[in-house]
Amino acid sequence: MNHLQIANVAKTFHRTEVLTDVSLTVHAETTTAIVGPSGSGKTTLLRLIAGFTAPDAGSISIGGTPMADGGRLVPAHRRNVGYVAQDGALFPHLSVGRNIAFGLTGHGKTVQKRVDELLEMVSLEPSYSKRQPHELSGGQQQRVALARALAKEPQLMLLDEPFSSLDAGLRVATRKAVAATLRRAGVTTVLVTHDQGEALSFADQVAVMRAGRLTQTGSPFVVYTRPADRQTAEFLGDAVILDAELHGTVATCCLGAIPVKGRAEDGPVQLMLRPEQIRVVDESPVRGTVVDSDYFGPETTVRIQLHAEPETITIRHWNALLARPGEELCLRVVGEAVVFPES
């Protein structure tokens, strides 16, 4: 079932086109991440879905009900959409309990019971209900914001970079906890983030946004391994881009003949590999010398000068001992490459 349907949406601020012809479908009870660099328009798209602003063109419907369509516009407070902002946006003058109960109607015990339930959903003790927002850590604040947004059982949950203000360790833990809570609650979710790792690990579907357009939408595996163009490839992770000559389904480059996915016209193309596809082996005709390396502990990033070509490539390797400058390595490509037309 198509739960959220965005069709040909456009938005302009002060004569600058922020969103251009954006279409996106999100299925019920799935998670979609909209990922893009800052200024790409992803937050604007989320605010259009929430109803804080209106699109200039196109339509948005949630659960089959049109929310914005031509002149008709359902205001934010009638959309029953949950929204978690970047810093949680907890009301500083209300306790945690009253924050969570803000959208609830009813009195006394029933509300308190629901608040306790919601706190439990986000793995916080009922005693947190009495605390003030400023007494909580950043991660706890985000979980309270999520509980508050879940209180009215929204038909759609919108998360606007909810983890970006947390420090690295807490970010992963909070993200996992939030994802688990949302999955249990069975809420259709749209997450906006500039962190490709977060998008790939969090979502069932990733939509890549660049300069106001969605450049590619698909499963995390597909968008990572088969990016639609070079910029998308480079935005979603490290990429090794090489000049190659395509013949049918095989491209020849300085790393040898490599099978390719996708289609392009025969002739000169650009070939994209993920660094982890290039492995160090005992014996191979492709050789190179280590130029320098960055040690990260579990893995090492190694820059290699290929013998056959003037080019250097950067790969990842687990064994730092092999990666000392001057060391000679044999390389082999695993899996298929992606080709883009010569630009």
Binding site: A50, H77, A85, A89, F91
Partner: peptide
């Protein structure tokens, strides 16, 4: 300045009409 628009938006997303929010 201590009442950023994000808070008012959060209230609207929680079902409060703009004047109430």
């Amino acid at each position: 300045a201590q009442a950023p628009p994000a808070l008012e938006e959060a209230a609207r997303a929680l079902g409060k009409a703009p004047p109430t929010a």
